[in-house]
Design a protein around this nucleic acid. Structure first.
Lengths: 217, 217
DNA sequence: TTGCAGCTCGGGCAAATTTCCCAAGCCGGA
DNA sequence: TCCGGCTTGGGAAATTTGCCCGAGCTGCAA
């Protein structure tokens, strides 16, 4: 890892939208101490870029098409346990946050955060601290207090990922392709999710995902 | 409207994520001819900002929480028919694209597009042309729809009623009972609605109903 | 160490639904 | 009158659902 104090903080940006990456890059580099040394637009490339550039911090959006971003976190951390990963996404569900941290993320900030909060989170993570935006802290706090958690708490990581894609409009085959699963498995998850959540209709599932903040409409 | 040739193109950015807005701002302003004169983070503020700054182009993400971005498009266009609105979002469902254009958008580009495609789309829209990214053009082409009318305008009264109940979470049998129809008829309507709107999954149908204000979630 | 529990992944198979194509009655407009 | 549209449903093939099953894996606890 580089000497942060002397050279600033090197950042690997992982997001599937080119213009979004370019925007972040400009925002971060305007800070002076942050340098984007590489970009990746999918989870598969993320580790390669990480290895090639050894960045101080990986800033990564977990809602990418294809393999789950959580997968990417585990992937990187498994092979480089010292990696610092800051999850940066539009999602703000407690289950997702918890999943990200237990996958090995060092921080979690939402895109609703002020830019200053984001860059400060990057600096914190680079120092080895844990970081999260205020809204995330609030959500985790509420979550830990409520005895009956969100419906989503009943769901496993895979189930949540499949629910998100399904509610986003993806077909069963598309989800199977994205996640490299058999159609049958996705169908089974679909059924399991319905029984676990009590949804009797696909429409109810979509509404559930929307009210839980898993999907935006 | 400003003199585009002399002053460049003034842009109003509407997106609910502050850092995303700031990123776009920097990308756009690095172009020289594009100037972000205002930002808004929700549909409600968008029209106020539009009126206050009279931008050449509104660049707007329709996937905002709360009120529909489509509503914002209609809102602006109803009161300022000369407004040029470029939808810029991560969604690429044919129904959404159609809904956006029939709501009065001048262009539709996805966030998967190259930054150069986005800025070119802004310039096209500023000239009064229609613009869309390549992926959107492909999706629309495959969808091969009749370019007239709002998505809901294609639907008959019965179809809209069935869509509303379906999106509200009712099963096919429940709808049949409510409306005193055979299950078969409701199934046929369900299928017809999907083909007419271009929705490929039930989830897309629910999203469509929600974005059109047919259902609230 | 063993064992249990829970997640993940998929096969199987009957029942149900979806997907299309079709027909017929009704009604309003040219 | 005829055309076009909405509404209502049948039929048959294709697909999905509902539910049950087992197997591999991981973490955790005794």
């Amino acid at each position: 890892m580089n000497d942060v104090a002397a050279t600033g903080i090197s950042v690997l940006l992982v997001d599937d939208h080119p213009i979004v990456r370019q925007g972040y890059r400009r925002v971060l580099e305007s800070q002076g101490d942050l340098h984007v040394v590489a970009e990746a637009d999918n989870a598969a490339d993320a580790y390669g870029a990480f290895k090639a550039h050894d960045p101080d911090v990986v800033v990564l959006d977990i809602s990418m098409p294809g393999a789950s971003g959580l997968e990417a976190i585990r992937n990187i951390r498994a092979r480089s346990p010292r990696a610092r990963i800051l999850v940066f996404t539009m999602h703000n569900e407690a289950v997702l946050v918890k999943a990200a941290f237990s996958a090995g993320a060092s921080g979690f900030v939402t895109k609703s955060s002020e830019p200053s909060a984001v860059v400060n989170a990057i600096r914190s993570v680079a120092r080895g601290e844990r970081a999260m935006s205020d809204d995330i802290a609030h959500i985790l706090a509420e979550d830990s207090l409520s005895p009956t958690g969100s419906v989503l708490d009943q769901l496993g990581e895979r189930e949540i990922e499949i629910l998100r894609q399904f509610a986003g409009g993806a077909t069963t085959e598309e989800i199977a392709t994205h996640l490299n699963l058999s159609v049958k498995t996705v169908q089974n998850y679909h059924y399991l999710i319905k029984t676990k959540t009590g949804a009797r209709t696909d429409a109810q599932l979509v509404r559930l995902a929307a009210t839980c903040g898993l999907t935006k409409i």
